[in-house]
Design a protein around this nucleic acid. Structure first.
Lengths: 302, 302
DNA sequence: TGGATTCTATCTAAATAAGTGATAGGTGGT
DNA sequence: ACCACCTATCACTTATTTAGATAGAATCCA
């Protein structure tokens, strides 16, 4: 006879109710069933779980330790069942999202947190990418939902929706030569190194915001931010991402020859229609559609 | 039919072996048994775990997620069994130790770490106390092993062994009035507040090291150290415990009228004979008997 | 295309495990 | 000593698991 969940739950019930009989009543079984069950478990484990000297059984030291562990196991099974029922009820087992690195981590994490609270049974997979990466991952079925800043025009093949805009501002390290100057001309910008986002697919950012002749193309926005800190060059970076660093003075907004050159780049939401998203996926899509409101909310908070 | 471990292991075996038949062979069962088992599990959960379109079954998305969880459950059961066998083999389920606060944390933690590696199945409970506390806990059966600095004479009722000595030195905060003076007389010491260890039982440290007339009796060594830092008074504290603070200059060793007044207090090991200690307990006793060697080792390291 | 192989699903019968109810014997409080 | 409540065990019933046989589907190879 093998270790069975039934025996473990019986074990726990006895400990909780104080006696074999009480456990039996509580479980709607005969007392003899409980007695033999626990007896079998003891034989199987080779460990005496209760001492039966007095009227009521009392946990042995080994029993105390094993009880704690048994509780964990039974609890895990409970969660297992709940998760399965969630799946049975049409909630996704797993939801995979690809996000452009430029997209605000703050908004994303806030959303994921709420998602986790609402759909605890659903696993999450979040991938990061830039430019064409996101679209590719959705098209290939690697992920279910994508949040992307399209290089050129968004593909019409898969469902998509314009959900927001991200503002970019030119920034440099506080000790960068350009930081001090006012009303920078195009020539000023050209003469210093610009850091530009690229992707494995070879796409670049929109030509209209590539000023420099000396260009470094870096795959990761995170890496670019780091390089800008270190004074390696200037770059157009998302307003949200650099807000904190601007406030602290580590980064400086470059003042351009024409005021308010602040390119607005559209943010698109794309998803696979093929495999119908479950309830959790639908919820995520809806919430993502509202991110423009978020922007407002977050701005208000500051 | 309830969730059973058998079904879960079958589920895992199928996933690992790639087919129902292979799993059956691997488990030494008939293929029909595997087939019905997994079928029942699916019906029970209400979730399709494998798609049987092709020749070989392939995990559904839900199956993938649930498989991971099933693995954890079965693994927990494995550990549960191993723990039980350890107990069956005479290894303690739990070992409870009471330690005098004065005793070196460094030595103790090092020992506990090695214990945990050697006896993973055994739970540990460590209590701290001072003076009579330890002996009381062992006598009352609250703990199995005690490490104590006896107030007067060690009880002869329970087994005991002298294992080490702890040196005490008089210390005060660096800005304490006594800190600057050289060759302090007994009168000097008497005129400043001395902090002395006491216990709930009312014992005090040995009279020979109580100089002051103005005395605060504090229950915890940790609290005393904190008070000494803050300049509340001077105290005899264990050399090891204050070594680091002396080096950093936060505490100062008081230079007494007679040089090298450094009381050596014996450290005893006591234990219950009543309930015979299991293998883990025996090992702990043996290692604790060697702590004098430890002192040497630790000194060498510095 | 046809045959060999290997897979899964399903049926029946046998084996195994779990449960019931009754009974005997112990403990503890009044 | 009585009563209420506890556990262990026996004989018996019920439920679950398993084996063995068989049929149908997928895959590979000649």
């Amino acid at each position: 006879m093998n270790l069975s969940l039934n025996n473990l739950t019986t074990f726990i019930k006895i400990a909780d109710n104080g006696s074999f009989s009480a456990a039996a009543r509580h479980m709607g079984k005969a007392q003899s069933a409980v007695s033999t069950a626990i007896s079998n478990l003891e034989i199987d484990l080779g460990v005496k779980l209760f001492s039966r000297d007095g009227k009521f059984p009392v946990l042995t030291r080994e029993g105390q330790v094993l009880l704690r562990e048994a509780r964990q196991i039974v609890n895990s099974c409970q969660i297992f069942r709940e998760r399965a029922s969630a799946f049975e009820g049409g909630i996704d087992s797993i939801l995979r999202i690809a996000v452009d690195e430029i997209f605000s981590q703050e908004i994303l994490l806030d959303l994921l947190e709420r998602f986790g609270a609402k759909y605890p049974a659903t696993e999450l997979e979040v991938l990061y990418g830039v430019l064409g990466d996101i679209q590719m991952m959705v098209e290939q079925g690697r992920v279910d939902i994508g949040i992307l800043i399209p290089g050129e025009s968004p593909s019409q093949i898969i469902p998509n929706r314009l959900v927001s805009h991200i503002g970019f501002i030119p920034v440099a390290s506080f000790d960068h030569p350009l930081a001090a100057k006012k009303r920078l001309t195009r020539h000023d910008l050209e003469s210093h190194r610009q850091l530009v986002i690229t992707s494995r697919g070879g796409e670049r950012e929109d030509e209209s915001i590539i000023f420099g002749k000396q260009i470094w193309m870096i795959e990761s926005t995170f890496a670019i931010m780091d390089l800008v800190y270190r004074g390696a060059g200037w770059s157009f970076l998302p307003t949200q991402a650099v807000a904190r660093d601007l406030k602290k003075g580590r980064l400086v907004k470059l003042s351009l020859f024409m005021d308010n050159v602040e390119p607005l780049v559209p943010v698109y939401l794309i998803w696979t229609e093929q495999r119908r998203l479950g309830m959790a996926g639908q919820w995520m899509l809806e919430e993502l559609s509202k991110i423009d409101d978020y922007h407002g909310t977050l701005r208000d908070r500051e």
